[in-house]
């Protein structure tokens, strides 16, 4: 079992059938890469969205505390 083509160029050309073969391999590899990356990216997105929500939550709470404190101060 040895390499079927003399050099790399003829390996690319595959005597005429190269474009078809490389196009289908390219598409398949791209699709498989997408299948792997999509959930990873989505999880990262979720993490960031959760972090943002966390910060808003804390900011809102801090402003609430500040407002409550100012109201009590105004009331005295």
């Amino acid at each position: 079992m040895q390499f079927q083509f003399e050099n790399f160029a003829s390996f690319l050309a595959m005597n005429g059938h190269g474009p078809y073969v490389w196009f289908s391999y390219g598409v398949t590899i791209a699709v498989m890469a997408a299948l792997v990356l999509v959930p990873v990216l989505r999880q990262r997105q979720m993490r960031e969205a959760f972090r943002r929500q966390l910060r808003q939550e804390q900011a809102r709470r801090r402003s609430e505390i500040a407002r409550a404190a100012s109201e009590t101060a105004a009331a005295d």
Partner: peptide, 15 residues
């Protein structure tokens, strides 16, 4: 790279 060519279809069979 290493599988032989197909007699009738040449290299396109590698798909």
């Amino acid at each position: 790279g290493f599988a032989p060519q197909d007699a009738k279809q040449g290299n396109s069979y590698r798909i």
